[in-house]
Design a binder for these strands. Structure first.
Length: 406
RNA sequence: GGUGGGGUGACCGAGUGGCUAAUGGUAGCAGACUGUAAAUCUGCCGGGCUUACGCCCUACGUAGGUUCGAAUCCUACCCCCACCA
């Protein structure tokens, strides 16, 4: 079957499972590298494959601007376009409602964006976002949502949450229309196990694979709003996965943890939970401990380009003078291409001379670091040692900066 | 030898009497980054003291001088560049 989730073990709220998608399976918990423009910045599909990543993201808004979804569709869909044959997920552009706040206006029907590329006005509605994602052809499409900042007042958080629910209905309707219109059978989750992939295959160049739509829980930092959001989503189900959005957007970490704990008991056990935009290594473990199965975050590659690498003990500035002349590997415990082939001193040199290889190598390490963290957590959940391992891991890991030399 | 131009903090380079420990830039150092408007952004960057406001020292080729006050004006010298002999 194209969309299924097998829960294999739990450790408290933490879960280990396997997500089956049209383009392959994803053992969970898992980190998904972000490839906004159809590229995990700086890395080839082969590079990303070697990090062990099983699924990556693309972005509706950015791919709509460049090269345009029709081009991607005519080139055979996002998988063929990018050379990444494993599962993919596209974000809906909802995050850009938040991140491009200065360049957009929201109304009930949708969002007008002033393109950051050429200034032209682009309209994104739930229908358009769904249509674009259908053309892009990822395994999973995300609902178009209204993300508000972490410090948003209740009224705004409520407005965003309610609107996201209304938009969800429109996304789903459009998604079913697209699936039905071209195949005669719905591609959405509810029927995933009742019709064969071949029967559902949309007749289009990017085809062969049906696509599932996932809803997104909003509600800011307000527990009751979060629960209402979840309730509304479940009433519009069933779904093959559920995302938690609007976190890590400026709110304190304990608040994010509290929201996750609030939601966890109400989340259906039988589908994967995806915490959008998270996160840093410690955030992954905290999320996993609170029942999250999937994560994505740009920090691995952005920090990689900016010369910050994650280590078991905390982050390290690769540009720093401390690494000058060091023959040590970046992270002796890591099995990535970078850590097994070059020294800290050489990596620092690459940043000093501003060669792109430095950015690529540290990005590879950071992505591998998070992917491996997911793999390790999974193994610990399966063998029953997750809790202790997680506590010890967090104890050893200092989020900000490596302790200074004595 | 003559004439003209010039010597500013690690480097390049502004500044022609007080608002100058001295604009900018580079290099150096440190930090930030969470569904990517990001190979980006921020801070520090002569030395010492102070929790801080701040204080002291040294500094614009060298040495003198003028002035209440000089990187800025004057004199001599040293060095660099261009052109002419």
């Amino acid at each position: 079957m194209s969309f299924s989730f097998q829960l294999e073990a739990t450790a408290g709220a933490a879960r280990a499972g396997t997500l089956a998608l049209p383009h392959g399976t994803v053992p969970t918990p898992a980190f998904m590298p972000v490839g906004t423009h159809g590229v995990v910045r700086g890395l080839s599909a082969a590079d990303v494959r070697r990090t062990g990543a099983r699924i990556i993201l693309g972005n509706t808004y950015h791919l709509h601007l460049r090269p345009g979804e029709s081009i991607v569709r005519d080139m055979g869909g996002l998988h063929r376009f990018t050379g990444w044959e494993r599962p993919m997920l596209t974000d809906s552009g909802g995050f850009q409602v938040f991140s491009l706040e200065q360049l957009r206006t929201i109304s009930e029907s949708g969002v007008e964006f002033r393109s950051h590329v050429d200034g032209t006005w682009r309209r994104l509605t739930p229908e358009r976002a769904t249509e674009i994602q259908w053309d892009l052809g990822a395994d999973i499409a995300m609902a178009f949502d209204h993300v508000v900042p972490g410090g948003a007042p209740r009224e705004l958080a409520e407005e965003g949450m309610e609107r996201t629910l209304r938009w969800l209905s429109r996304c789903r309707e459009e998604h079913e229309r697209l699936a039905h219109g071209r195949t005669g059978a719905p591609a959405h989750s509810g029927d995933a196990s009742t019709s064969s992939p071949t029967a559902r295959a949309p007749v289009r160049p990017s085809a062969g694979a049906p696509q599932s739509l996932w809803p997104i829980i909003q509600g800011g930092t307000y527990d009751d709003l979060r629960l209402r959001s979840l309730e509304g989503i479940l009433a519009r189900g069933p779904w093959t996965g559920i995302a938690i959005g609007g976190l890590s957007v400026g709110e304190p970490k304990p608040v994010m943890h509290r929201v996750l704990e609030t939601l966890e008991p109400g989340l259906p056990r039988e589908v994967p939970r995806y915490l959008m935009g998270v996160g840093f290594p410690a955030d992954l473990l905290e999320g996993i401990a609170r029942g999250v199965d999937l994560f994505d975050c740009v920090a691995a590659t952005r920090n990689g380009r900016h010369g910050t690498a994650w280590l078991p003990t905390g982050r390290i500035n690769v540009r720093g003078a401390a690494l000058k002349g060091s023959t040590e590997p970046l992270d002796p415990e890591c099995d990535c291409e970078t850590c097994t082939s070059v020294s800290r001193g050489y990596l620092r040199h690459l940043f000093v001379v501003e060669d792109m290889l430095g950015m690529r190598l540290v990005s590879i390490h950071n992505v591998r670091f998070l992917v491996r963290l997911g793999e390790q957590a999974r193994a610990r959940i399966l063998d029953g040692t997750f809790d202790r391992w997680r506590r010890e891991w967090l104890e050893r890991h200092r989020p900000s900066a490596v302790p200074a030399e004595p």
